[in-house]
Structures are given as C-alpha cells and as structure tokens.
C-alpha cells in the first residue's frame, strides 16, 4: 500500500525541482467515490495529494492537453517537465505515447505507484449510491476494502468491487518511472479476460445481436475518447467534416461506424487501463472490443502495446512474413 505521507513528500520534492513545471496526481473529490486530478505548482500544493484504490483515472491524458501557445518572435519554447503519478497501466500509456512521438521522454517525470488494482466507480456507486460526502476507501491485507459510511464500517471482498480489467492485468507495476513509491507488487497470474471468450463462443448472429443492442444505446458523448490517454489526435476523425467519415446523427449505422473506428484506432495501442468502459454512461462493454483486438494483435503479429518506447507503432510497421492466409 502506498503511504500518503511518502507520496506527498515525493510530490513536494519533484515540484521543487527547477526543471519541473507542475505535477499531476490525485486528490479527494467532493462527494461519493469521486476523485479529482490534482495539480501541484509549488510544494505547498502537494498536501492535498493522495492515493487510494479509488484512483482509477488515467492521468496520462493530461500532458497532451497542455496548450502550446504560439511563440512571439525571438521567444524560446519552455522546456520544462511535467510530473505525473502513474500506475502500471498509466505508465504503459506514457510509453505508448512516447513511442508514437506524442511526447518526449524528457518531457515527463514519472512517479510510479505499484498498483493493487482499482475500484470500478460504477460497481461501488451501485453498492453505496448517492453519498453526499467523500468516502475514504482502504485496502487491507486480506483482500478486502474497508470503508466507513455514516459511522458504520463496511468490509467488502476486493473481488466484488475490483475493476474487471484489473483482474486480468499483466503489468501492475510501472513499466517506466523515474521515482518509485513503495515496493513493487509481486507477479501474479492474471486471469483471462473471460468476457471475450464468452462472446467468441457465441454464434455470429448472437454476437451481432449483442453489439447491435449496445451500439444502439451509444449517445456519442465521446467520453470514451476523452478519457483515453491514446485518443489524443488533434482532430479526431469522427469530428472531421471534410471528409465526413462518420455522420453526426445518432443511429445504429453511425454509432457502429464510430465504435468500430475507435476500437480499430486503438489496435496495437490500447494498454487496457479500462477507462473508456468505466466512463461510458450507457455501459457499452468497450473493453471486450479492446481486449479482443489486443489478443488478436498478439496472436497474429506477436505485438504488445506500451512496453517499449523504441518499438515501431503496430499499424505503421509490418513484417514481410505477417500472416496472409486470408489473402488469395
């Protein structure tokens, strides 16, 4: 478990460095199980930082939102680093972004946190709905979450609230970091992401029925895209008007096109943080698409995203002996 005292100390030290502009981490939200991103510009801002199993958000989205204003004549671009608190999956997102040249390694200071898995906000919200105050959640050594609501203590088996992707997480430890807080988690045998296998076992008609039902519900809020650290295109294809790849009307046809596009653009890039699925307001099982593609990309091309900053991007590279049994 990460000690908050230690975390705050590291944030203070990092933000006090001359070459660091600010540090991004988590702070407690105002109600329920919501957490917020925290930005420290000086050592005194570090006090509000914390880490708990509620910190599911992937902070790797923020460095890419940095606005780069045009420079005045003679003005030099400021080369200062951004500090970010990263879990295993978040660090892989950063690796993937560096690989794609969206960021330079020197642009960031990574404060790694070995992760024990995060709580799915939807699951805990369902269990304890409408909390008007922020609720602290801690994890004990018996694989239980402990929380206190209105003076009553609750102990809940971890299994019940853990985010689905975390059960099949292969890389809970940061894969790239400058500072590591706490001890690395032991390697554990991740479960298969069973929802994909289940779907694959169904007939083709059943599968379409399943997805049709879900895609019909999509309201095209693009929350999945906004929360995703790898959907950082300056102009997303779905927003383009000339040419217009996907129309703006919300109906099965366009929604399907959008969801296929999103899933396809993340082929060989998605690092399975699970944020897209956790933020989807209509509960479209987006991780089933992502995990399926991840599996196929691995099987067919022996490629895994977000492990090596020097690797070539999946869809921008090839091997002459890539499988081509489907071509005739």
């Amino acid at each position: 478990m990460v000690e908050n005292k230690e975390l705050i100390k590291v944030i203070e030290e990092t933000v006090s460095r001359d070459d660091v502009k600010y540090v991004i981490g988590y702070k407690r939200g105002t109600y329920g199980f919501q957490i917020k991103p925290a930005f420290a510009y000086s050592a005194k801002d570090a006090k509000e930082f914390f880490y708990s199993p509620l910190c599911s958000k992937n902070l790797a989205v923020y460095p890419l939102l940095e606005e780069k204003l045009p420079l005045r004549r003679g003005e030099e671009a400021e080369h200062k680093k951004i500090g970010i608190v990263v879990k295993g999956c978040d660090s892989r997102a950063i690796i993937q972004i560096i690989q794609e040249k969206g960021l330079e390694r020197e642009d960031v200071v990574l404060i790694g946190i070995p992760c024990k898995g995060v709580i799915d906000p939807k699951k805990i919200e369902k269990r304890f709905p409408k909390q008007s105050k922020f609720v602290e959640v801690e994890e004990n050594s018996n694989d239980e979450y402990i929380l206190e609501i209105d003076g009553t203590n609750h102990k809940i088996p971890k299994e019940e609230l853990l985010s689905d992707v975390c059960k099949s997480c292969e890389y809970p430890n940061p894969q790239l970091y400058d500072i590591l807080i706490g001890d690395t988690e032991e390697e554990f045998q991740p479960e298969q992401f069973s929802r994909v296998d289940e779907l694959e076992g169904k007939t083709i008609e059943e599968r379409w029925e399943y997805w049709e039902k879900h895609f019909q519900n999509c309201i095209r809020c693009y929350a999945c895209r906004e929360a995703c650290p790898l959907c950082y295109c300056k102009t997303c294809m779905v927003d383009l008007l000339e040419p217009q790849w996907v129309r703006r009307s919300v109906n099965l046809s366009e929604n399907t096109a959008w969801n296929v596009m999103r899933a396809f653009h993340l082929a060989g890039r998605c690092i399975s943080c699970g944020e897209c699925e956790r933020v989807c307001p209509v509960n479209i099982p987006l991780m089933e698409l992502n995990k399926f593609v991840e599996k196929e990309v691995k099987e067919m091309f022996d490629y895994t995203a977000g492990l090596d900053t020097e690797e070539k991007p999946f869809l921008g590279s090839f091997r002459p002996d890539d499988p081509e049994d489907f071509i005739s």
């Binding site: 379409w208 029925e209 296929v260 990309v297 890539d322 489907f326």
Partner: peptide, 29 residues
Amino acid sequence: NYLARRRIATMKKLLEFLGIESDRVRMTW
C-alpha cells in the same frame, strides 16, 4: 501492400467479433 495487409487482417477479425461475416471483406493480390 504490407501495411494494408495488417490493417485488413485486423479489421476482418474485428468485424467477425462484432458479428459481421468477415468473408464480406476480401483481400487479394
């Protein structure tokens, strides 16, 4: 064509998973 091969291979798999016959997409040299 090597790049296309990867893309179409992945897209065909994705379509099949969604419940759309991947044979509807045919690639050939």
